[in-house]
Design a binder for these strands. Structure first.
Length: 322
DNA sequence: TGCAGTGTTGCTTC
DNA sequence: CGAAGCAACACTGC
């Protein structure tokens, strides 16, 4: 998400939104109809692009902010787009006869380059036309992405932002701060709860790291990478984690996320930068998606995959013992 | 062919 | 309130 924001920051501020098209209006949560959504954006200038957790925020003139969450398969792409010409059988209908906001139009990247090769170019559902003739497009295969507009000064009313823990890359995210959150979580667990009795489901460290209300921004890939780095088993109960290990986890969070940002994100699957280019973290991954591979620490371990809370977790059988 | 798996989150149920 | 399980959706790969 940080790579996307950094990339968009370089191009969007100063541009005006001249038109908006949407082929899957269900993704727009506020305002609740597309005409109002479009109305709030057209002729507005983009002032700033920023991020809170995994939410991308685009501040506009007129005091409104566009919030975009890409969820699983969303891609914010920046480049020149065009309406895909209809098939021969529909040639009687030329593009001029259609409204640009007709729902079933297909938009495709119009220029050669990585954007044209984006595997998700087929799934563009939302297009912002910009004053420089280029576009910001949101492609989303699984249609989980969420978009909304809210007054900038009142953004903190939104649960999406209000319920987020601190950003781990923020300078104010110190070890004492992390420890406080961690201990707060521990304190909330009642003695006698199921996990003490062998049902150990609650309080697993991987889940703790992925919960956005604890720390904002860590997902499945980086929680695996962080725990690999720290040498902690993903199922480890947070009740049992001592200060020395907590410090290892804290350091690993900073280290892994910095490394990931330097690599411009992880394109092991379809993730792409707004330019359509791949990130590079998949080349330096140690745990995620490495099932069966030798552990990069050369400790004789092999990466194993298990399920935690419906997600896959990957860890080394030797240096990440339970 | 069929079904598990996919970078997320929120709702329902207990 | 907390946690588990599943739903939202559509495609890939075993």
């Amino acid at each position: 998400m940080q790579t996307i924001v950094s990339d968009l920051k370089k191009v969007l501020p100063g541009l005006k939104i001249t038109d908006v098209w949407c082929g899957w209006t269900k993704m727009i949560k506020k305002p609740d109809n597309f005409a109002d959504f479009r109305e709030k954006l057209v002729e507005k200038k983009i002032l700033e692009v920023r991020r809170q957790g995994k939410n991308i925020l685009i501040d506009l003139s007129g005091g409104q902010t566009l919030l975009i969450h890409q969820k699983m398969t969303g891609h914010l792409l920046y480049g020149k787009y065009r309406i895909k010409t209809q098939n021969a059988k529909r040639k009687t209908q030329n593009n001029r006869s259609k409204s640009k906001n007709e729902k079933n139009l297909k938009w495709v990247a119009a220029e050669a380059g990585p954007l044209r090769d984006d595997p998700y170019n087929r799934f563009v559902h939302l297009v912002f036309e910009l004053s420089n003739g280029r576009h910001l497009a949101l492609s989303d295969l699984r249609k989980f992405a969420k978009v909304l507009i809210w007054p900038t000064p009142e953004l903190n009313e939104l649960d999406d932002l209000r319920k987020l823990g601190p950003d781990p890359l923020d300078k104010s995210f110190s070890f004492p701060e992390f420890k406080k959150i961690f201990n707060g979580k521990k304190g909330k667990m009642r003695a006698g709860a199921a996990f003490f009795l062998g049902g150990a489901k609650a309080g697993q460290i991987k889940k703790f790291l992925m919960e956005q209300k604890n720390i904002a921004g860590i997902g499945n890939i980086y929680s695996d990478e962080i725990l690999w780095e720290a040498g902690i088993h993903p199922l480890k109960n947070i009740q049992e984690i001592k200060e020395a290990d907590l410090r290892k986890i804290f350091n690993a969070i900073k280290k892994v996320l910095k490394k990931a940002i330097k690599a411009k994100g992880d394109s092991i699957s379809d993730y792409r930068r707004p330019s359509g280019e791949k990130g590079g973290y998949q080349n330096i991954q140690n745990a995620y998606h490495m099932t069966g591979k030798k552990c990069g620490k050369n400790d004789g371990g092999v990466i194993q995959r298990i399920k935690i809370g419906g997600r896959s977790a990957h860890f080394c059988t030797v240096h990440q013992k339970l």
